[in-house]
Simulated scan of single mutants.
Amino acid sequence: MFSTRSIGRQAFSLSKRSQARWVSSLEGNPYIYVFSNKDATNGSHILSLLPSEPVNPELAIGVSTKLPPTTDSFTENPKFLGTLQEVVSKHAHEDPDAKSQAQVMASTAGANLSSGGVLLTGQRGRRRRAETGDSSGGASGQGGAGSGARGGWIHISDSRRPPEFGRIAWPEDIFGSLEVEGNGQFAGGDGNYQSSGTYRIVTRDGILGLSPFLREKLVQRLRELEKK
């Protein structure tokens, strides 16, 4: 026979699991939670990186009248965008992905580095840029990266549309850039992060996609703000 205390614990555990199941996430992106926007009459949804309910609209990613969100249906939250940039500015140089890009840049003389950490020889880079002439050309054409022992810049970009071999991300996918010294270390210790000013939370390729490291840091910051 189960004791009353044991049954109570089981019921409480079941209740917590049931509540957790009711918090739905965006299809294809389990880290973004979807809530009905009860204050709106257009059937819109609030998107957030926090599963907390009721949702704090100041911490939400934004609002969308469609799921998945599109460029026409989504309205971003400027305050969230500010928090996002705050976190990337503070922690991007600590991201293992960024550190890897910086080391590859420094160790490969005479090569160009894309935002995804892919190397491309200068010869091929010139050929690709001459053929396309678009805004997503080779990194050196953008002033994005230097050659070995000279340093330069690497781009911190969204993962929703990884750039092709030898290319940098589209401006709307770039959070900002970090300066790298010739020895592969970040200039000033933190890379002197510069925001791109062109990043968009939702594009035709999808919604916000952060590296696991930066996503964790952003969620931590949002939780701090949630407690205030």
Rank of each mutant, 00 (worst) to 15 (best):
122 G>T: 15
149 A>T: 15
112 N>E: 13
165 F>E: 15
174 I>L: 02
113 L>V: 15
89 S>D: 09
223 R>S: 00
94 E>A: 02
72 D>R: 11
137 G>W: 08
223 R>F: 00
186 F>G: 05
224 E>C: 04
104 V>F: 04
213 F>L: 07
122 G>F: 11
79 K>G: 00
210 L>I: 06
214 L>Q: 07
90 K>A: 11
26 L>C: 07
217 K>F: 01
82 G>Y: 02
123 Q>C: 07
38 K>M: 01
15 S>V: 02
96 P>R: 11
188 G>L: 11
159 S>L: 15
105 M>R: 05
69 P>G: 01
178 L>W: 03
58 E>F: 12
80 F>H: 05
210 L>W: 02
129 R>F: 01
56 N>K: 06
93 H>T: 05
211 S>D: 08
140 S>P: 04
34 V>G: 11
13 S>W: 05
113 L>S: 07
163 P>E: 07
86 E>L: 08
92 A>N: 04
61 I>D: 08
196 S>M: 05
40 A>C: 14
11 A>I: 04
21 R>S: 08
204 R>V: 05
48 S>W: 13
207 I>M: 13
16 K>A: 00
67 L>P: 14
139 A>I: 08
117 G>H: 05
167 R>I: 04
26 L>F: 04
211 S>Q: 01
140 S>R: 10
69 P>R: 05
97 D>G: 02
150 R>S: 09
123 Q>H: 13
203 T>C: 00
67 L>N: 14
28 G>H: 05
53 E>T: 15
76 E>A: 02
94 E>M: 14
115 S>F: 00
52 S>P: 03
126 R>N: 13
201 I>G: 08
99 K>Y: 01
45 H>M: 06
107 S>D: 12
194 Q>K: 09
165 F>Y: 14
204 R>Q: 11
119 L>M: 12
140 S>N: 09
172 E>Q: 13
202 V>K: 02
153 W>Y: 13
163 P>F: 03
147 S>E: 12
8 G>D: 07
223 R>A: 01
135 S>N: 14
67 L>F: 10
97 D>R: 09
86 E>F: 09
184 G>P: 12
79 K>D: 11
110 G>N: 13
224 E>N: 10
219 V>Q: 15
144 G>M: 03
71 T>A: 03
41 T>F: 07
122 G>D: 14
99 K>L: 10
208 L>I: 03
51 P>L: 06
203 T>M: 01
109 A>L: 14
225 L>I: 12
221 R>M: 06
204 R>L: 03
172 E>I: 08
25 S>D: 04
59 L>C: 06
12 F>G: 00
42 N>L: 07
222 L>A: 11
36 S>M: 05
10 Q>M: 07
145 A>D: 14
128 R>E: 11
147 S>Y: 10
90 K>S: 10
13 S>I: 07
127 R>C: 13
28 G>M: 04
124 R>M: 05
20 A>N: 12
51 P>M: 12
38 K>C: 02
142 Q>D: 12
158 D>G: 03
187 A>E: 09
